[in-house]
């Protein structure tokens, strides 16, 4: 089932876009592209569809291709749908010295998915990412804007369960 979503920023998002655009000279609106894509991804289900990218191109008066090439270059932009909760585990050296690989396998087993996959209920997507600047607090993952550090299997269980309950509550309301 795919939801048909109208691609248009909420008034609050629109306000934020104008604030961001005002940071750059008037003829350099394209500079707002990265921050505006972050807003777009937040607004439209955690990923950037072609429609979303075209919409952003229109807003910033640039060609759609200029948006596509940026969206595909930067790893934080998802050009395919992701689950409601995107788990991004750091897999780089320093984290591996403190058990990052075990945390990844634990989550894979727990959610019964492999890295890169989404659970059947569309709740969780598991991704591995490169160093997030938390190497001293390893192992760690990022979900949304939050860093979860010094992870253990028990902590992972708790964090994921809490976030899932929150999401379910939000959906039911």
């Amino acid at each position: 089932m795919t939801e048909v979503q109208k691609i248009e920023f909420s008034p609050e998002a629109m306000l934020e876009v104008s604030r961001i655009v005002s940071h750059y000279p008037q003829d350099k609106m394209k500079s707002a592209l990265l921050p505006v894509l972050h807003i777009a991804q937040n607004e439209f289900g955690g990923w950037l569809s072609a429609e979303t990218m075209d919409y952003v191109a229109r807003l910033l008066h640039i060609h759609p291709i200029e948006v596509y090439e940026v969206a595909t270059f930067y790893s934080m932009y998802n050009t395919k749908p992701v689950g409601k909760i995107l788990i991004e585990v750091c897999q780089t050296g320093p984290c591996c010295l403190n058990g990052a690989e075990k945390i990844v396998s634990y989550i894979e087993k727990k959610l019964n998915i492999k890295v890169g996959e989404t659970t059947k209920d569309n709740m969780f997507t598991l991704k591995t990412v490169e160093c997030l600047g938390a190497c001293g607090y390893a192992p760690m993952f990022q979900i949304g804007e939050t860093f979860y550090e010094h992870l253990t299997e028990e902590k992972v269980d708790m964090i994921l369960e809490n976030l899932k309950q929150e999401k379910l509550k939000a959906i039911n309301n």
Binding site: K30, S31, S75, C131
Partner: peptide
């Protein structure tokens, strides 16, 4: 938006201009 290379100063400038 997640690119180590943007720490290199000229890549950072490109990125701030809204490019790869």
């Amino acid at each position: 938006a997640g690119a180590y290379i943007c720490g290199e100063e000229t890549a950072l400038i490109e990125s701030l201009e809204g490019k790869r």
